[in-house]
Amino acid sequence: MSALPPATRPRPGGRLTARVSRAGAGFVTPFLIAFALVFIAPLAYSLYLSLFRNQLVGGTQFVGLDNYAAVFVDPKFWDGALRVMLFLAVQVPIMLAIALVAALAIDSGRLHGRRLFRIGLFLPYAVPGVVAAMMWGFMYSDRIGLTGSLNDLAGFDLLAPYAKHWLLVSIGNIVTWEFVGYNMLILYSALKNVPTETYEAAAIDGADQFRIVRHIKLPAVRGALVIATVFSIIGSFQLFNEPQILKGLVPNLISTSYTPNIYAYTLSFQGNQVSYAATVAIVMGVITAGIAYLVQLRGMRRDS
């Protein structure tokens, strides 16, 4: 986290330095104003909110850190938090492994129709998450969807995407489908940055494909992989659209605390508990940022 991208070091000397410095701040200011309005302000506001309690009867009272104490022993919160942790522990590695294999394959130049693969695999990323969840929701249906057709073909219930124990897998499948291409592209871009000379040198040394992958390509994508992992972790913790859409189809299997995000949403918009919802969001944000930071730290340390 320490290295900053290089900046121009202005030559010593009063007026010009001051002017350049002002200009630099000027370029960044518009972003910072917007950032303050839509990031810092809500964040500060939710910190403020989390110190209160809302009641239908009796209005709003200051309760200090009571909400935080409550979140830590709230079984519903942990139910959702543990579920998304399980989800990310399984789904993220699978998704990234697929993305990595695809990126390596496309980068290897050994595919027929490389362009087709690159675009085809990337297409799902352009599909809005809601639309993706709706489509898969239809397809998962045992009665009218592809699942039904497949099961008819097999003659028995081969697939049961809506069964209790498969549901999280079904959701994971939707998320994987949506983001494999995106991650593939990030990794592929990193691979393309390996200077050609490196490969040439390796080829002269007589390294075979697997050695090149192991000793040149994998190290080359590590940074990108860490970034992709961090984004995927953040995404998993925010899981909302897919379970929320599927809830209409399997109402009893997706509870109001299925993910922390759904829980916070239910609390604030159905339960009139905005303060507690803000607390849940903050705690979840801290956990997310903490885990993301750890992954980043670990990923980078191994590297150096």
Partner: peptide, 19 residues
């Protein structure tokens, strides 16, 4: 800004709405 990337966007949604 780096910290902000790690903050779940939807976690901010409710406070943003209230604000």
């Amino acid at each position: 800004v780096l910290g902000a990337i790690a903050v779940p966007g939807t976690a901010l949604a409710v406070p943003t709405f209230l604000l």
